[in-house]
Amino acid sequence: MRKKKWRFWKRLACFHFSRPRAGKSEKAQDEKVEQSEKLEQAGSSRCSDDQISLQNITCDVHQEAPSSKVLPSSEEQPRKEHLQKCVEGNLSEGEIKSPLTEQQDSEVATSSESDLITRTRSLEIGLTALANKGPSSPHIIELLDWQEFPDHYVMVLQCPSPCENLFDYLERCGGILDENFARHVMQQVVEAADKCCSRGVLHRDIKLENLLVNTDNLDVTLIDFGCGDLLHEMPYSTFSGTEEYCPPEYSETGKYHGRPATVFSLGVVLYTLVCGYYPDHTDLDKIKNWLWYLPSLSKECSHLINACLHPNPEERMPLDRLLLHDWFNVIPKVVETRAPCYGHTGSAL
Rank of each mutant, 00 (worst) to 15 (best):
E148W: 01
V335E: 11
Y277S: 11
N329F: 00
E26H: 13
E107Q: 11
A307H: 00
L177H: 04
S74W: 09
Q147Y: 14
P78W: 09
I140S: 02
C301A: 13
P248T: 07
D105K: 14
K4D: 11
V269M: 03
K133L: 11
V87I: 13
H303G: 11
C163D: 02
D115W: 12
R259H: 06
N289W: 09
Y236L: 12
C196K: 06
I125N: 01
R316S: 05
Y250C: 05
M234C: 09
L208V: 03
H16M: 08
V190R: 01
R316A: 05
E233H: 10
G134P: 02
S92C: 10
T58G: 14
A182R: 03
G276S: 03
Q147K: 10
I176N: 07
R46E: 04
E233D: 15
V274I: 09
C275N: 14
C275V: 15
P313T: 09
K195Y: 09
E164Y: 02
L170Q: 13
A182T: 00
L202C: 08
R121F: 01
T118H: 09
L270V: 04
C308D: 10
L144K: 15
K195F: 07
I305T: 10
A131G: 07
S106T: 12
T128K: 00
C341F: 04
W9A: 01
I57R: 07
E93D: 12
P311E: 01
K207W: 00
L231R: 05
I141Y: 00
K24R: 15
